[in-house]
Design a protein around this nucleic acid. Structure first.
Length: 363
DNA sequence: CTGTGTGTTGAT
DNA sequence: TCAACACACAGG
């Protein structure tokens, strides 16, 4: 049971529908005795039910295990990602926090203190973003996350003695250029890729990440976004009173055209964590079922974005990786995520990035 | 035999 | 999304 870490079985359950409940299951349950039923007295076997009930955890993402230990799990795309088991409830909670930061970004809801602005947390953020989700999950499951983080800190001079200008440069280089924070994704609607030349930014995200100056409401502002290839896109961002919506207008249609975006595809927005809050935009073809290559598998991006691709071998599996050396959000990490399986490339694999296209319409 | 972590379901 | 619950079955 260690082959994959994600809840796969996408199809099985669907096709087989092994209508659970083995009626035959008369194999009576565990001999309920474990319970040291209250000392003698009346106590009918209420214990039957009471006793085997596991104590729930006060922490998010933490579940009790029969043996008294604690499991950690996080959900994404309707699927549970198991983060391992721990002796201490608190440890499990920490594992969840780490996964949450990696999966959902800096402002994810966590059990403890979230990453903030200090140098240490920036380093950790960098560390998280420079590893794929599956790698982070592996570390959590193997309880090696802390060691790996420390290791990386030494490499960047966080505190290791010796160091030198070499280490220092390396670190500056990294923090200056690469660290990106995921802001949000949006599955584009038919009208977002239609002739309207506008992309509606969900209010919740717009107000959180792209706040408009009170005075600018009418005109809006020009925002620059860099794509994976380093190309900069400038869009007009404003609020439409008529529809009470935040939108990207001028310039948007060109992006749609060049990327050949189709309804259902996902556009993603990131922002550099460093001083300069550079904005980034990326996209991926619509994904049917999401998965993470965990443990040892990683996915193949059934997408053929324009980005040139190179095959990389990791954990013994071939992966596609964009040339972006600094992998952060764009490359193998977040954007990847599909298992190489029975090729259920059905709709997502609309290769031929140019011609045909699915009728996503209603999902 | 011991436990993990998966299958499932029902509640937010 | 998320946790509760039961248990199949991987590992030793």
């Amino acid at each position: 049971m260690e082959s994959s870490c994600i809840e796969e079985s996408t199809s099985d359950s669907a096709s087989a529908t092994p209508s659970v409940s083995p009626a035959t299951n008369l194999t009576s349950p565990p001999p309920e005795n474990l319970c040291r039923v209250g000392s003698g007295s009346s106590v009918v076997l209420d214990s039957e039910a009471e006793s085997r009930k596991l104590p729930s955890s006060q922490y998010k993402g933490v579940v009790p295990q029969p043996n008294g230990r604690w499991g950690a799990q996080i959900y994404e795309k309707h699927q549970r990602v198991w983060l391992g088991t721990f002796n201490e409830e608190k440890e499990a909670a920490k594992a969840y926090d780490i996964a949450a930061q990696r999966f959902r970004g800096r402002d994810a809801v966590t059990n403890f203190k979230p990453l903030s602005d200090n140098e240490q947390d920036d380093i950790q953020s960098l560390f998280l973003n420079s590893h794929s989700k599956s790698e982070i999950v592996d570390m959590l499951r193997k309880h090696t996350y802390n060691d790996e983080l420390l290791q990386s800190q030494r490499n960047y001079g966080g505190g290791g003695g010796g160091g030198g200008s070499d280490e220092r440069n390396k670190r500056e280089e990294l923090s200056a250029a690469k660290a990106r924070e995921q802001l949000f994704d949006k599955a584009v609607t038919p009208s977002d890729v239609g002739k309207l030349n506008r992309l509606v930014i969900p209010k919740q995200h717009a107000e959180k990440h792209f706040p408009l100056q009170i005075g600018n409401n009418s005109k809006g502002v020009l925002l620059n976004f860099e794509d994976n290839g380093g190309k900069v896109w400038r869009f007009r961002y404003s609020y439409w009173n008529s529809s009470q919506s935040y939108v990207l207008t001028k310039g948007w249609s060109r992006f749609v055209k060049e990327k050949n975006l189709k309804a259902g595809d996902i556009v993603s927005f990131q922002r550099s964590t460093g001083d300069e809050k550079q904005l980034y935009i990326d996209w991926k073809a619509r994904m049917m079922s999401t998965g993470y290559g965990l443990g040892s598998l990683q996915m193949v991006q059934p997408v053929i974005s324009v980005h040139p691709v190179q095959v990389v071998r990791l954990f013994g599996v071939n992966l596609f990786k964009t040339p972006t050396v600094n992998s952060v959000v764009g490359s193998s990490s977040s954007w990847s995520g599909k298992r190489v399986r029975e090729m259920d490339f059905s709709s997502s694999l609309d290769l031929d990035c140019c011609k045909k296209h699915h009728v996503v319409g209603a999902l």
